[in-house]
Amino acid sequence: MHMLYNSDSFIVVQFEVPTAEEDTGPQLNRGGFEIVDKFARKEIFIEGALAESFQQGVQALIEDGQPSEDEIDEFIERYAMMGQQPVVMH
């Protein structure tokens, strides 16, 4: 688990779960991103193709220069809007 981003609006955490293929096969990584919307108090976990799309979008923002916090938050908001799971504190 790696916290990638933390702003006043969002937290993004990357999860990588190594899974071993057959004894002689290569090791694969499986994981995704958890996005927490602090204001809406909702979260979403994305994986697979959606996680890849998210990661590529973030990389494109970075390649275009140094994005502002507002630009990053605007991008993350597109994914966070899909969140339905309420954030619950234990």
Rank of each mutant, 00 (worst) to 15 (best):
D64T: 07
F33G: 03
T24H: 11
E16D: 15
G31W: 03
A49R: 12
G31T: 07
E71L: 03
K38F: 00
G57M: 09
S53D: 11
L61W: 05
D37T: 04
D70T: 11
M82K: 13
P67Y: 02
E71C: 02
D23F: 11
H90G: 08
P18V: 10
V88H: 08
E69F: 03
S68C: 03
I44R: 02
K38T: 01
F15E: 14
D23P: 12
G25D: 13
A80D: 05
M1Y: 05
V12R: 11
Q66W: 05
I76Q: 06
R78S: 11
L28M: 11
E77G: 04
D70G: 07
L50F: 04
G32W: 02
H2M: 08
F15I: 13
F33Y: 15
Q27K: 13
S7E: 08
V36P: 00
Q55Y: 06
Q84F: 09
D70V: 09
P26M: 14
M82Y: 14
V13Y: 08
F75W: 07
E69I: 06
Y79K: 09
E74I: 04
G31F: 02
G57Q: 10
E43R: 12
G83K: 11
D73V: 01
I44S: 00
D64S: 14
P18N: 12
G83M: 08
D73P: 03
S9D: 06
Q59E: 13
S9R: 13
D8K: 14
T19S: 12
A40G: 01
Y5I: 10
T24P: 02
L4D: 11
G32I: 03
K38E: 00
Q27L: 13
E52M: 08
E47R: 06
F75Y: 15
E77I: 03
Q56P: 01
M81L: 13
F54Q: 08
E74Y: 05
I46Q: 01
P26L: 12
G48H: 04
S68P: 03
E43W: 00
